[in-house]
Amino acid sequence: MIRLSATARMDAFLTPNSFKFVEINGESPAGPAYLHELAAIYRELPIFREFADRYPVRYVSPLPHTLSGLLHVYRDEFEGTAERPTFAIVDRLNVPTIHEFRLVKAYLERQGYPCEIVDARELECRDGWIYANGRKIDILYRRLLTSEYYEMKDDCRAFLEGYRAQKTCYLNSFRTSLVHKKAIFAFLTDERYSHVLTPEQKYAVQEHIPWTRMLRASKTRFRGLPIDLVEFVRANRRYFVIKPNDDYGGAGVTLGFAATESEWDEAIRTGLEKGHVVQETVEIHREPFLVKKDGQWSEVPSIVDLDPYIFGPMMGGILTRVSGSNLANVTAGGGTLPMFILRYA
């Protein structure tokens, strides 16, 4: 059985003294090809060249690590045998990330791996193998989220048939939902389950994962105190964030400290109805970034989002986002930057 998630991304905020992970993208993390190209663009900028001459830097791209991670699972865990496996990037084709799919395809083909981009509804299944645009596929690089698949599953019969046949390697598999949902942090931070963790793991959770619970009528503990969850969250909104259990891009997130009483009540009502999670607010550190507006440069206090890409036990590359607002997601107004590492501190 292959691991739950061949590629994942841990989304974290910088705090005044450390960092806190607020969720994990375990299904199909976006961004590696964008970052790969951004780093190349930065290196060509005259001002960056001048900086790098004075302060040598290195860059760790997540794109080659993504390819390596996919190939490792295909060969060592799925036991695939193709020397140069053929890839298919599968999603809907009307999504904004279609541009990244083209960058990934171009990169794979430069490395000698054939690749197709295809809508999940256009796949064929022949003798258990997936075919995309008439080509037999060894590795299906799934960018279609499970929740999106369920919205159109009746039109994706070949997609499901190939998944069940297990001749084409699906990465990631549907099993990634077990680690992708934000509720996994509720499991990690709930004292009822922490006995399964080692002392080192408990310490890591305490230091780097905020208190999280499924939002439901229940009794639990917060900072050691017994509480009625819903009423405590309602009365102390400045300490909490309510977010969907399975969504992305900052969609549906309500920040208690920025919400009115009526907005918070509505967030609780919606969360109880739809199975959202409630998470303790993270004290986010802000760094001044120069922003040019109306021809003038000014310093804008910005949050910094550092999101390492994970490939099994290995890390390879980081998505970095900055935002002058309280959400760092690109779809919520944040901006993506490549993170360079100084060779000499």
Rank of each mutant, 00 (worst) to 15 (best):
N236H: 15
L229C: 05
A106C: 08
F232I: 12
K243R: 09
D247R: 10
E116Q: 11
C115D: 02
T81D: 13
F289G: 12
T7E: 05
D190Y: 00
S302Y: 11
E122G: 10
R142T: 09
A39M: 06
A12M: 12
T189I: 13
L197V: 10
I117A: 10
K219Q: 14
V291D: 00
S68F: 07
A40V: 04
F101A: 03
R92A: 13
G224R: 02
A158W: 01
V196I: 15
L35S: 04
K274T: 11
V277S: 10
I2M: 14
M339F: 07
I89G: 00
L35D: 03
D294K: 12
G252E: 07
A106H: 12
V57T: 15
I209M: 13
T7I: 14
T336C: 14
G275A: 01
H276V: 03
T212M: 05
C115L: 03
D53A: 15
R321L: 03
S68V: 09
G112I: 07
K219P: 07
P62M: 13
I318Q: 00
R216E: 15
K20V: 10
G31W: 02
S325G: 13
I41T: 06
T168G: 04
Y150P: 03
G333M: 10
F159K: 01
P301I: 09
G317L: 08
Q201R: 05
P29I: 08
I242G: 08
K181E: 08
G128N: 05
R343N: 14
I2G: 04
V277P: 00
A120F: 04
A82K: 13
F48Y: 09
F51K: 12
M1A: 05
R3A: 02
V233D: 00
R102S: 12
E283G: 10
R54M: 13
R234A: 15
I318A: 00
E280T: 04
R221T: 14
R75I: 12
I41G: 05
P210M: 11
T320W: 06
F185V: 08
E200Y: 06
P85M: 06
A217G: 09
R216Q: 14
P62Y: 04
D265V: 07
L14D: 10
S218A: 15
E273F: 11
D11C: 04
V60W: 04
A40I: 06
L71Q: 04
M1D: 05
M339P: 01
I2E: 10
Y113I: 04
N25Q: 09
A52H: 11
K202P: 04
A40T: 07
L70R: 05
T198V: 03
C115W: 06
P62Q: 08
V179M: 05
R221I: 10
Y163V: 06
L38I: 08
G317R: 07
H208A: 01
F159Q: 00
N172P: 02
N133Q: 14
T281I: 12
K153N: 08
V304P: 02
E23D: 07
E283T: 14
T189C: 08
Y42H: 15
V230F: 07
V241H: 02
G316D: 11
G312C: 07
F159A: 06
V205E: 00
R175A: 15
I310T: 01
